[in-house]
């Protein structure tokens, strides 16, 4: 009897413990989701407000309490933003600089990273330390002498200072690609070498195809950096005809300080391509971050 009673008690107690644990587990889940939803809403509000404002006529802007869904919807802000600045010309300029940089950066960085990761040669590690060291140099230190170099080349007032330097690589992207290349098994290179492949062939036929996620990260970062760049075009571009979107929008912002509707419409037009690009590439992008040394 005694035996059976203890046997009866144990499962009962453990099931209540389990129930308690399960309850705790569920409570914790709810708290986690609650925190995420609240924080997510908080961080989305600026975007929603941006979109909402971009569809408001001037008299709708200052209503209290704030109106989230404009009534009526003022679509006119978008045409106004497109015509207040030569939007498509600036877009074209921005795309030229951006794509030039993406292509040139991919070529130069993928090559340099190969030299650092896949070939062993004396001085390689010392140079790699130098490369890491250059990451710590603030742009403001080299800004003025760089300007003087470009001035002596006669490049001020052209897009050249914003494009051609990309062929000389970027320390951070070289570092990132090197970390990725290091994860590719050496046996692949060794096998190719036995088959008589040159380093350039190994780079082109083996390493590059296997590095797509990392290359995608570099391409995406380069795209964003150039699309968003404000200081570079501000320093080097002279002619209004050469302006990029960032500069054009800045001009619009300082001219039309109170035209919030068209301003927000213009900001939407600048943000939208970046968001669309991220949506289509996010899987590769996240994979690239996960697989490269970026996470340390």
């Amino acid at each position: 009897m005694a035996k059976s009673s203890t046997q009866a008690v144990i499962p009962e107690r453990s099931s209540s413990v389990l129930r308690g644990l399960r309850f705790q587990h569920i409570a914790r889940r709810i708290a986690a989701y609650g925190a995420l939803v609240v924080l997510g809403a908080l961080f989305s509000i600026p975007f929603l407000w941006l979109f909402s404002t971009s569809l408001k006529a001037p008299e709708q802007l200052f209503r209290l309490p704030p109106e989230w869904i404009p009534n009526p919807v003022a679509w006119g802000n978008y045409p106004r933003a497109l015509t207040a600045i030569p939007f498509f010309l600036y877009l074209q300029n921005t795309l030229y600089i951006t794509f030039f940089n993406v292509v040139a950066t991919l070529i130069s960085c993928s090559l340099a990273a190969y030299g650092f990761a896949r070939i062993e040669w004396p001085g390689r590690n010392a140079l790699f330390v130098v490369l890491l060291g250059t990451l710590m140099i603030p742009y403001s230190v080299i800004q003025i002498p760089q300007f003087l170099i470009f001035r002596d080349l006669g490049w001020i007032g052209t897009t050249n200072p914003l494009t051609w330097p990309a062929f000389f690589g970027n320390a951070f992207f070289i570092f990132l690609l090197r970390q990725f290349y290091l994860t590719i098994p050496q046996e692949l290179s060794a096998a190719a070498k036995i088959d008589g492949a040159s380093e350039l062939q190994i780079y082109w036929r083996i390493i590059l195809p296997l590095s797509r996620p990392a290359l995608a990260v570099v391409a995406l970062f380069t795209f964003m950096n150039n699309w968003n760049d404000f200081v570079g075009p501000l320093i080097y571009l002279g002619d209004r005809e050469q302006y990029t979107l960032a500069i054009g929008l800045y001009g619009f912002l300082s001219r039309a300080r109170t035209e919030w509707g068209p301003l927000m419409a213009a900001a939407m037009l600048m943000i939208a391509p970046i968001i669309v690009l991220f949506f289509f590439t996010q899987r590769t992008f996240i994979q690239g971050i996960t697989l490269t040394g970026l996470k340390g």
Partner: peptide, 26 residues
């Protein structure tokens, strides 16, 4: 060594012209 230097050459030139020289000049 030659191969390694060739692969990093673009970066190395850029380092001297666009980084090291400007730092020293500054």
């Amino acid at each position: 060594t030659i191969n390694g230097l060739l692969f990093v050459a673009p970066w190395l030139i850029g380092l001297c012209v666009f980084t090291l020289y400007p730092v020293l000049a500054s």
